[in-house]
Design a protein around this nucleic acid. Sequence first.
DNA 1: GGCTCCATGTAAGGAGTTACATGATTCA
DNA 2: TGAATCATGTAACTCCTTACATGGAGCC
Lengths: 182, 182
Amino acid sequence: MTYVLTELDNCILGIVWRAGSITAYGVRNYFAQSATLTWSASTGSVYPSIRRLRTARLLAAKPPSGPRKSELLHLTASGLAALELWLVQTDADFGRATSDPIRTRIHFLGALSNGSRRHILKHYQDITRTAIDELEQRLALAMTSEIDLSEKLGVMGALAELRARLNWLIEVEQVLGFGSAG
Amino acid sequence: MTYVLTELDNCILGIVWRAGSITAYGVRNYFAQSATLTWSASTGSVYPSIRRLRTARLLAAKPPSGPRKSELLHLTASGLAALELWLVQTDADFGRATSDPIRTRIHFLGALSNGSRRHILKHYQDITRTAIDELEQRLALAMTSEIDLSEKLGVMGALAELRARLNWLIEVEQVLGFGSAG
DNA sequence: GGCTCCATGTAAGGAGTTACATGATTCA
DNA sequence: TGAATCATGTAACTCCTTACATGGAGCC
């Protein structure tokens, strides 16, 4: 009955809410195109999730209008309630810093020689900059075309994180470059 | 033979490197005490990982010196090589923004009434501030006591991320507060 | 002699991802 | 008619977490 929704389940509710009505395939494309939602658009997660949401009567479907066989999904009243609950009842744990593989690695940089360490710090900065450039291009597109506000805000949030990481990496470089490192 | 190490496996190599020699139990405590490594200290991940690393000869153990039964783990030469490889061969994907549940939710804030939306934005800011406070206290401790540089750098990185998120959330509030929101 | 750490493990489950498989529709 | 896209699914696997189980060591 009251099965516990995963983050992905709830996120799909959100996508359906945003679209008004959308096919399962459309949900998949939404994930594929979004620069900020980190789930893969894999069929192995999206279709089973939608099936569960329909079984739980949080999503419902209307038969297709056109020649295509796909059904149009929409939120039920309980679906909207579940979405609102997810947004509102956000545990304090979610406020904590995320899991960042680069931050993890910085922990153990001391295992490298001084030369490699400097070199690899530059690499971490480079791949962060690449990611920043990618998002900035998205944002530029969002300015000109009719991309919605929420996606724009999401991209801005991701950019904020990446710029903060880049500045921190530069700080790390300076600390390790002058101190004797460890 | 050449089994592929997970992030956790590599991180454990890093912890053992840092300690010089350490028991499996010590590795677990390391995770439990770290404010920056996001893995749980669960026995169900740590012990099996260490077993795999020993089988692969990346970790080796010396019999206990004291009365306690626990063995002291240390890195082998190949273990150190694996650790270095992990630090150096960091895929560009890891440069991207991390998966942030709060950023995900911002995507769908439009599903709430104006009142709830403002309220919940404050909540997201609050739990972020709480996390910031927690880390700042850690950092203060790190200044006085002999906590090592790497842990301090890690905490600084996590703080940078959280402060960036907080500023972004304030920006989101301003954007949604003036525009008609959506 | 019981309580608390120290210490190590297994079993089951959760939340996805990757890879595979299938068919229908549109367009050149 | 063949390629691309639309469309939906399952099976196996990954990587980790939770919960359970067990026993020794020190201590009061």
